[in-house]
Write a protein that binds this DNA or RNA. Structure first.
Lengths: 124, 124
DNA sequence: CGGTATCCTTTGCGATACTG
DNA sequence: CAGTATCGCAAAGGATACCG
């Protein structure tokens, strides 16, 4: 297997592609954005991200933690208390994901004007 | 249904969430990045994006075209000649997706260092 | 390019061990 | 009893590939 010292998302086998995949996954990006400004607990994240199931949130958090982008802090209390914070790398990536979503949010009216045919396409 | 004059990706029903979904879908982002600098034909895109099937490329291009982010130009020739270019909105979004992937590519060594446990997580 | 088979993602339920 | 943070499992649904 090749050694990717710089990363090439166009190469299927490059780890950078996997990471890009994780941070742009259905829920990954939203989690990163939500944690952009503050540390949040599991239930807070769940409330903030409309539509995510508990299972998916737990799974997404694990993947992102596995990538070293978020830090999971377990207070070992009962009832359970756990919170999540971005690592420095996570903050860098989060900022960029946010730049993307923010542009889309701000330009939504213009974007919607581009789609006169309300085509309800579904991908991912 | 609410009227999203500004967009809120955290709201499941907001169109901005769908668009974000499309541009960060498994192949959507890669297509956008590939078209960032030049107009490309179908086969060129396919060769550049390692691992994409014809079917998925066609589908992805349709979705992005439906969102008004890329322009499909059919020259009506025989043999068929079609190429794809970013629209102004597509260029804006592409730049931001690229900023994300580029950061990941450039910092790949540091990112990989964060994952000593080669956890082969799979998401999306 | 369409149709189907397969794979993967996602969901929902149940369980856990306590506290207000 | 509701809330808290996960996890395993079974089932469903959507994405993707493999054909012809």
């Amino acid at each position: 297997m090749r050694n990717f010292s710089r990363g090439d998302v166009f190469a299927a086998a490059c780890p950078s592609r996997q990471i890009l995949q994780h941070v742009t996954s259905r829920w990954g990006g939203l989690v990163l954005i939500a944690l952009r400004e503050e540390t949040l607990r599991f239930a807070q994240l769940r409330r903030r991200i409309d539509g995510i199931s508990e299972r998916m949130l737990a799974q997404t958090l694990q993947v992102l933690e596995g990538d070293g982008l978020i830090l999971r802090k377990d207070y070992g209390e009962v009832p359970p208390r756990v919170d999540y914070t971005l690592t420095p790398a996570g903050r860098e990536i989060s900022a960029r994901v946010f730049a993307l979503s923010d542009w889309i949010e701000k330009n939504l009216p213009e974007l919607l004007a581009l789609t006169p045919d309300a085509a309800p396409q579904t991908v991912q």
